[in-house]
């Protein structure tokens, strides 16, 4: 019981933190990281609802199948989003007037 509660709360907190970061930060890589953390939180809640302690019977396999599909989809979505972010950065023209502030990524990478 306490394990289910613990992991569900962790999933909730992860989702909240990821959502907050997705809104607040502007770097595209950080946004993709935040979406990943959010999806992890959702998976955690789903699997935690199906959990039963050792020796208390079988585990419901349906949430596991959903989470398995979700992980694979999440990885492919991450790959596509990374490619799109790279293309956006490469093709955005920073020398046009008025695009300086908008188009440039803020110097966030510690360089």
């Amino acid at each position: 019981m306490i394990t289910t509660l613990l992991y569900s709360m962790t999933g909730l907190l992860l989702f909240a933190m990821g959502f907050f970061t997705l809104i607040v930060h502007s770097h595209p890589l950080r946004k993709i990281l935040a979406v990943n953390v959010m999806s992890t939180g959702v998976f955690l809640i789903l699997v935690a609802t199906a959990y039963k302690p050792l020796g208390m019977g079988q585990i419901d396999p349906v949430p596991h199948a959903m989470v398995l599909t979700g992980i694979v989809v999440s990885v492919s979505v991450t790959a596509l989003a990374l490619l799109l972010a790279c293309r956006v950065q490469e093709t955005s023209n920073l020398d046009l007037p008025g695009r300086k502030k908008q188009g440039r990524i803020p110097e966030e990478s510690g360089q």
């Binding site: 998976f43 199906a50 585990i59 596991h64 992980i71 694979v72």
Partner: peptide
């Protein structure tokens, strides 16, 4: 959480 299939993925 006893989900070794998910852990493998």
């Amino acid at each position: 959480m006893r989900a070794p299939d998910v852990a493998l993925a």
